[in-house]
Simulated assay, not measured.
Amino acid sequence: MPENARDDRRDAAWGALYGVAAYSAWGIVPVFWKQLRHVGAVEVLAHRTAWSLLAFAALTLATGQLRPLLAALRAPRVVAAMAATGALISANWVLFIYAVSVGRLLDASLGYFINPLLSVLLGMLFLRERLRPAQWIALGLASAGVLYLAVRAASVPWIALALAGTFGLYGLLRKVVPVGSLPGSTLETLFIAPLGAAYLLAVHLQGAGSMGHVDLRTDVLLAATGVITALPLVWFTNAARRLSLTTLGFLQYLAPSGQFLLAVLVYGEPFTSTQAASFACIWTALAVFSVDAALRARRARQMEERARRLA
């Protein structure tokens, strides 16, 4: 076997391990946030932003990404976009933490199941990407699932839609802004961390903050929010460099699947027949979407191989 082929296989194997680690971590991270349910969601978010900045800054220095970070800081368009993504990811974080703390993890998993399909729709609306027939079918099924849930439950599944919407818009902006994953994450956290730090200082001066006022376990958990946020992102970045988008797309369902199983099997959240019908529509949509992506990627590889043989 040629040396470059062995290197490619080794890279793919490591990429798969990194991808499974990242998405599995995001799938079971509600267990961590549940330990902080006695702390308000906004205060947890403030700690997460402040400690994440320290973690991202350390990773930026350790991986030699300081120069790209400084270059991004000198680009006004990038700075403005990263301020917007910082606001979006903050909203996503606090919604997810809130959902976990109030026993709505099932709604959160629904949001992350919807997200890939919403990303396709955003690509069509803002990037003029054309949808294939199978993608239209997938979007229709997912929309039917959400609509059925809203009508039967007599309420809009706002947590799911807000999580999908904020993360979908976040992904759209990160896609079009010319900045790397780690420098971008560091920069967007740089904008939101001072707000978090100011909030923590204010509540501490009032004697109402949790850190230093509850117990040592709470202090350690709050300080660990930075690592809990940054480490899966590093694994994800390593996976993205080594894997095709199709493979990465399949792996992303590990996260909401883990959240779904935790919600139903571990935390005993009710899973009604209405929710089952809604999830069935969305899971079918994801199956149609994934099979279409896999077939398209296979055809592309076959065409590349045929072109190489003819060259």
Rank of each mutant, 00 (worst) to 15 (best):
L233M: 12
G40W: 09
V179K: 01
A55M: 12
L127P: 09
N115S: 10
G27N: 03
P157I: 07
K34C: 02
R301K: 14
A83E: 05
R9H: 07
T274V: 13
T225E: 12
L254I: 14
A307Q: 11
L195C: 10
T247Q: 14
L222Q: 03
G86S: 05
D7H: 14
S90W: 08
M82A: 06
S143K: 01
E3I: 13
T60Q: 01
L36V: 11
E269T: 08
R104T: 08
D292I: 00
V151N: 03
L147C: 14
L265R: 14
M211G: 04
G111M: 03
G180W: 02
G226Q: 01
I97Y: 11
P178R: 05
L248Y: 05
E188C: 01
V156K: 02
A144K: 08
L254N: 06
K175S: 02
R77T: 12
A108R: 03
E43G: 05
A202G: 01
H213V: 05
L163G: 02
Y18I: 03
L310G: 09
L66Q: 06
S244F: 02
L122W: 08
M124S: 08
L245F: 11
G209W: 11
T247S: 15
L105A: 12
Y199V: 04
F96H: 06
W136N: 05
A223F: 08
V227A: 15
L66N: 01
V156H: 05
T246C: 12
L216D: 01
R128S: 13
A46R: 00
S24M: 04
V177T: 15
A223K: 01
L169W: 13
G40K: 12
H204Q: 15
R130A: 13
P157G: 09
Y23W: 13
L61N: 04
S278M: 11
Q302N: 10
L139P: 15
N92C: 07
R298H: 14
A5P: 09
P68M: 07
S90H: 10
Y267N: 07
H213T: 10
Q252H: 10
W14D: 11
V288Q: 04
